[in-house]
């Protein structure tokens, strides 16, 4: 978890994605439909990265695409799905049911506690819950600890230090200072508890501009930063753009069969790069997603 002191970490997407080792423990930033590191996810799939152990707090299409591409061995998430709107994550569900994916399901608060232990240089921390649940049974690596002061027995969860945290931010500078909008979810903790952050930003800006907006993740945690416009698409990166509900619906429909998932991956990932991806999404659609803030009506129209 050493600091990263280079003054200029700006690089290209391919070089940044190569910092993620096959078999590595990878923290995914953002959650649900917001600020998922999609440009990096697509590039990892292009690189045929494999055997990943992913961790995060409530994710959706990032994990589902990686599972469909066969990139994940162990999934340690608190939730993978598309909420009540599009429902279950088709590729994740299929792989879990076929035994092709080890689902080491966790809890948002347990992941938080494990990352905090890593941040503090501690081997473990206790949690009050988890005892008596099925989640406990999925984690033979958890232990028990008796409090030396109260005598209570609590579940002990080991420190979890990801090799890399993948984080998308609306803006950052060449040194890697990142500004995020709330909710930060686990991104600050992932940045502090991982060996390195690999970041994409919609816009590279001056240090002064990112400092004025507010630096949420400091440059010294970041090993590489890439300018990837619409890099969270089809998820949102406020204040820039809302999530693309129709595109997510397209994935969920396609991924209903392994053939459909493969066809989506071929079209939107394998046969193209990020510039080509944006062309397929189209300027008109991107303008609609950016235009969410024009009026309540335009915002609602994205979802009605």
């Amino acid at each position: 978890m050493a600091f990263h002191l280079d003054a200029d970490k700006l690089t290209d997407l391919n070089s940044a994605a190569r910092l993620v080792p096959s078999g590595g423990l990878v923290a995914l930033g953002g959650s649900l439909s917001a600020r998922l590191p999609m440009a990096l996810v697509r590039e990892l799939i292009r690189l045929e990265t494999a055997e990943l152990h992913v961790v995060g707090s409530a994710h959706s299409i990032d994990v589902d695409l990686l599972v469909a591409a066969g990139a994940i061995k162990v999934c340690e998430q608190s939730y993978v799905g598309f909420e009540q709107d599009h429902g279950l994550a088709p590729a994740f569900r299929r792989a879990a049911q076929n035994g092709e994916l080890e689902v080491r399901e966790s809890c948002c608060d347990t992941v938080l506690t494990q990352i905090r232990a890593a941040e503090m240089g501690l081997p473990f921390l206790p949690v009050r819950g988890v005892k008596g649940t099925g989640i406990r049974e999925l984690h033979p690596e958890y232990g028990e600890v008796t409090c030396p002061f109260t005598g209570e027995t609590l579940v002990a969860v080991p420190a979890l230090s990801p090799d890399v945290a993948l984080i998308h931010a609306p803006m950052g500078d060449r040194a890697g200072n990142l500004h995020l909008e709330q909710p930060y979810v686990l991104d600050e903790r992932f940045a502090a508890g991982s060996a390195a952050v690999v970041a994409t930003v919609d816009r590279i800006v001056s240090t002064q501009e990112v400092a004025e907006a507010g630096i949420v993740i400091p440059a010294y945690r970041v090993a590489a930063v890439v300018e990837a416009p619409f890099g969270a698409h089809p998820t949102s990166a406020f204040p820039g753009y809302a999530y693309d509900r129709a595109h997510i619906a397209e994935w969920v429909r396609a991924a209903g069969t392994p053939q459909g998932a493969a066809a989506y991956l071929e079209q939107y990932v394998m046969s193209t790069d990020e510039a080509g991806y944006r062309e397929m999404i189209g300027e008109q659609r991107m303008a609609q997603l950016r235009g969410y803030s024009d009026s309540t009506e335009s915002w609602m129209s994205l979802y009605s």
Binding site: Y79, V80, L88, E105, C107, C108, G129, V130, I135
Partner: peptide, 12 residues
């Protein structure tokens, strides 16, 4: 049937 997961409910 694998469903989504419990979020933070296991602890809270």
């Amino acid at each position: 049937v694998k469903i989504g997961g419990g979020g933070g409910g296991c602890n809270v």
